[in-house]
Design a protein around this nucleic acid. Structure first.
Lengths: 169, 169
DNA sequence: GTTGAAAAACAGCGCTA
DNA sequence: TAGCGCTGTTTTTCAAC
């Protein structure tokens, strides 16, 4: 039989090339799901060259094993009235270091927070936020960050543009 | 009839509260899709209180209008052999500023690049990358960034932890 | 915006290699 | 054990209202 879709893997490639229990078919599935999480199981199966039932089982296994963390829609923040994005670097007082995890959870609970980077170097956290306008940004920094006892200082940069390379479904 | 799911919108809320042509039902749909892009259209429709076909039409409209930019799966970088994440701040030479967009496209084309922030302040770009190990990181910075004529300098911070608050599907 | 029916996709099961 | 085809069930899709 001849598949109508392009093969997932070049013919000569050995299938034992695995990283962390993933074979090439798994990787082919992941690549497609990363580009379009709503791609039908049928279509994925056809493209990677396995039966739909097998494909479904693999996807579920990937999800269960935590290799796929979740499926998300990428929503334009401007449309939801959060047209201003910023990166706020936050320094934490050295005596508050033990509660770093707690502070991260606090950050994650703020509705304006898009993502949090816990980084090495002179700053501790880099927080990506999306807010309505500069007044909201000021309020966020002043009230929700600077006032916190753990926070030694903040530094805010406005984001002119934010690009996620593989957002194209 | 009595809906088994919580209503999308509190009973008294006026539906004309819109931001950018979105009504409350649109916002309810977006909220669900942001948490779980694979949630069945049926279930979304039931939760926001409209018929499945209407819900589908709304979702498609949101996608067409660019309010939903795409649907993607969040894949654990560790599982795909990219266990090291970093934030690289890049300064661009002032004379190369006109080609900033071009450089951004170049960054987006690099397979290690997860996202790009084009920011105000002392640095121009902040690039979030995921690579296999420190050797790969060094190679990336040295060969793909520092060697570029537009690049005035780079500064690399290792990411110890990266959190996306609404990762929960 | 809704209803309802046709088409498609999903999810489970036993069989095969 | 992993993959496959088959089948009932759910979901999507598109018409008319």
């Amino acid at each position: 039989m001849k598949s109508s879709a392009a093969r997932a893997v070049p013919p000569g490639t050995p299938n034992e090339v695995r990283v962390g229990n993933l074979d090439n078919i798994d990787r082919a599935i992941l690549a497609r799901l990363q580009r379009d999480a709503r791609m039908p199981n049928n279509a994925i199966a056809a493209e990677v060259g396995i039966a739909p039932s097998t494909c479904l089982a693999r996807i579920r296994s990937l999800h269960t094993r935590g290799i796929i963390r979740g499926f998300y829609a990428d929503v334009d923040p401007t449309a939801t009235g959060r047209g201003l994005q910023a990166l706020i670097s936050v320094r934490i007082h050295s005596h508050a270091r033990p509660e770093l995890g707690q502070f991260r959870d606090y950050l994650a609970s703020l509705p304006s927070v898009e993502s949090i980077f816990f980084v090495s170097g002179d700053r501790d956290f880099l927080v990506h936020v999306a807010v309505a306008d500069s007044a909201a940004l000021r309020a966020l920094v002043a009230e929700n960050l600077s006032l916190r006892p753990e926070v030694a200082g903040t530094n805010t940069s406005v984001i002119f543009e934010y690009v996620r390379p593989d957002s194209r479904s």
